[in-house]
Computed example of a mutant assay.
Amino acid sequence: MDLPSSWTFVLFTLCFVALIAGALFGFVIGFRTGGRQERFRQVKEKLKRNKAIICRQQKERYEYARQVKQLEEDLLHSASESEQYKERMSDLEFYQRKLRESERVISSLSAENADLSDMNVLSMLVQLKDDPLHTNLTREEWNGLFHLTDVLFNHILIDLKEKQGITRHEQEICCLVKWNFSRKEQLAVFNNTSEALTKSKNRLKKKLRLDEKADLDQFIRLY
């Protein structure tokens, strides 16, 4: 075999090997990408199923709680030794057990769903912190942020809403303060004037029974 033929053979072999390697590499990349897409699809389907189950369980929980409340009221008007009292007590124990089971299911499924949703909320929160002026949160995104804030900060928003009757906007203020948003960042998020934010915070102070000179942000951060 002469020299040109040898080089032609070598080049042909290298090209063939490169073609095979490229095909294998493309196959591996495609397989891994397809695998990730399939896993993501499965996760989304699981989350969707979990949400549907949670919804049904919440409805059942509401009914069980209503039954428990009614039975507890009935027991107050029944003689402790009567057959009616024993029957109501048995029913009460049954519904209390069903209520606990329902709450366990909801808690378990909610924990599974929290992994992905909370990651999305955290990403959104980082974006809001980086560019508060141009990041407009939807009502659903605010709800997600409320939920994560309550999970991480001992249910502060639920507690203040139930005990002090704070409004949704006041929840938003507390939420941003709890995540250490500065006053400037708060103004940017709400696209509001300094005077308007001050008025909102003063109304919130009154609901929380704080002195006018009290530091609202500090109070919320330590709550």
Rank of each mutant, 00 (worst) to 15 (best):
D159Y: 05
V189N: 07
E38Y: 02
D115P: 00
D130Q: 10
R56W: 13
L71E: 02
R139W: 00
K46H: 05
Q58H: 01
K161T: 13
Q58G: 12
Q70L: 03
Q96P: 05
D211G: 14
E185D: 05
A21P: 00
L109C: 00
D130Y: 12
Q67V: 03
A196M: 12
I53Y: 08
A188M: 07
C175Y: 07
L125M: 08
F9P: 09
R104Y: 15
S110Y: 01
L145P: 01
A52S: 02
K161D: 08
V151W: 09
K69P: 06
A79Q: 07
Y62C: 15
E172R: 08
H77T: 05
V189M: 03
H155M: 06
C15V: 13
E81T: 13
K205A: 15
W179G: 04
Q218R: 02
E45K: 08
K201F: 15
R139E: 01
L116H: 02
D150S: 12
M89Q: 07
A214S: 15
Q67Y: 00
L210T: 03
N113T: 10
V151S: 07
R66I: 08
T167C: 00
R221M: 07
E38N: 06
T167I: 04
L145I: 11
R36G: 09
E195D: 10
D131H: 12
Y95C: 03
L152S: 14
W7F: 15
R97D: 15
F12D: 04
K163V: 15
E162A: 14
K163C: 15
I20Y: 01
I20K: 02
K213V: 10
L47N: 11
D217G: 12
N50L: 02
Y85W: 12
